[in-house]
Design a protein around this nucleic acid. Structure first.
Lengths: 305, 305
DNA sequence: TTGTACGCGTTATCAC
DNA sequence: GTGATAACGCGTACAA
């Protein structure tokens, strides 16, 4: 079932069929209707592979993410897919995990599929060492690359970022104005946004004349139980803190759990501020104040640097 | 940059290049190495569109889901994508929403993209009225259809299901043995699995000689605040219940919130059992007992009916 | 307004 | 072991 069958049945050439197919106005109404009817009768559907070969595109965009089941990324993917489809693009999903080699491998894989662009969802694709991002910048010579919540300087690279620094800075300032002096900061990784958030925290303290101390900046796996246990053990070691800020809501949930098992009242004795304003932040009692990273806007309103 | 360029540079025919490309053994080691070197030098990558046209497949499978940001579906998608990719298939994601017309439209769209199979993730694709599922059964004549957590009888249809009925039945029986007599059941929709769960609930009551009553079976949007508010208003109306079972964890989170605002202790005064054993069930205090629907197994171990 | 002929880059089927 | 050549199905100059 191809364009030749249709042309034969309709008594026209394949060129005319193609014209009808692509809405070319240079077809008489009579012919158009005849062809459309034949298409309908035969149940003809154009072959996207052949079309792709000729036009060198299948209107497909690759979305890479480290883990599509992460609430933040799941949201990003949702918005991205809807946005792409509204422009009649397909989305090929690619979950890479967190290993740099794997990310590069999948990136090349998508390029070999000749997608029209690649979207890197989540801040985990921007590495600290510039040379580890070179593959992205080089690839952008061939195809557009979009970063959702990540920033990379380069031609044909489109970044959307939440101003993590300002967001954390502002939230930390609020805690400080409320009289909190020992704010514990929990983070999971030194990604682009991870570093920005942490700097926002540190700068807020400095602006208040407080020198950030290492013991109040703790790394923790992105897992609520891990966060709870870390806080318990820190307290057992005698660490004192009157607020917890986290780089992700899941850690903040862990902080709430810590407060509950320890009989500490929120927010009287302990303030907790999460990040991403995800579903998780709404599950706890009390609900967690969380910085909204505006994932929908990041996914749908890219802008050049 | 195509197979002709490579053949020319290597001084062989395109047939030989193709053979090298596809690991055909009928190539001398010497030739193979020569061709491989040229490919490497030229940075040649085979054109997937052309290959797709010839083989009539691009090794791509469509995944449909109503909402990829739903925790359960996000998990399913994650496992599906990883599983497909491990077999070198790509996954095209398609978020359909809940409207039947839209689902059918997207289903046809994916078919027109000539995907090798379609995976329907989540129980929301099996409608109550048989005729509303006809499009799936008919399409299965052309391409394999897999249902993740849904069952549909038909050739070339592969279903994986969690035995929702047994799961809810078992959980309800436990509540009954623990002495609970007024178990409130919250559900969101009459999907295939929605109905199975509800029947499990009803049958458990009947097995105990209790006739299910309508007032203890309540519909509620899949939203924690909505569930909390519904319970509050039911209580205000004088409804008495000593346990809550829900068709989804988000409703169970709402039930926990209800208990907290009402000063009701869990589990002494109120038992709560959720469904899906998702992240949400672990966020609350106390954590929610939740039925594990084994999404990973459903996504990765399909079996014929 | 319509038709012809070629290019897109593979894979597969021959023949040698 | 290797090479020529025909599909695969579409879009599109160019010709009519």
């Amino acid at each position: 079932m191809n364009i030749y069958d249709v042309s034969e049945h309709a008594g026209v050439s394949i060129a005319t069929v193609s014209r009808v197919l692509n809405g070319n106005p240079n077809v008489s109404e009579r012919t158009r209707e005849k062809v459309l009817k034949v298409m309908d009768d035969l149940g003809y559907t154009p072959n996207v592979f052949a079309r792709g070969l000729g036009l060198n595109t299948m209107q497909t965009i690759g979305i890479m993410c480290s883990d599509s089941s992460d609430p933040y990324l799941a949201n990003a993917i949702y918005y991205l897919e809807r946005g792409l489809r509204s422009h009649s693009y397909d989305a090929i999903l690619c979950c890479t995990g967190y290993d740099l080699d794997a990310k590069q491998k999948y990136f090349d894989l998508l390029r070999s599929k000749r997608v029209d662009a690649i979207i890197l969802a989540g801040s985990k694709f921007v590495e600290m060492r510039a040379k580890d991002n070179a593959y992205i910048i080089e690839a952008a010579a061939d195809l557009p690359v979009m970063l959702v919540n990540g920033y990379l300087e380069g031609d044909n690279i489109y970044s959307t970022v939440c101003d993590d620094h300002a967001a954390v800075y502002g939230a930390a300032r609020q805690l400080l104005s409320a009289g909190r002096r020992r704010i514990l900061y929990l983070y999971t990784s030194y990604s682009y946004s991870g570093v920005n958030k942490m700097e926002g925290y540190k700068d807020a303290l400095k602006a208040q004349g407080i020198e950030p101390v290492q013991e109040l900046i703790q790394q923790c796996p992105k897992d609520m139980e891990a966060a709870r246990d870390l806080l318990l053990s820190l307290r057992d070691q005698g660490l004192v803190f009157d607020a917890v800020m986290t780089s992700d809501d899941s850690l903040a949930v862990g902080a709430v759990k810590y407060a509950h098992v320890s009989g500490i009242s929120i927010p009287d004795e302990l303030n907790i501020i999460g990040y991403n304003n995800s579903l998780l932040a709404r599950c706890t009692d009390p609900e967690i104040t969380s910085i909204d990273s505006k994932v929908e806007a990041c996914a749908l309103q890219p802008s050049t640097p």
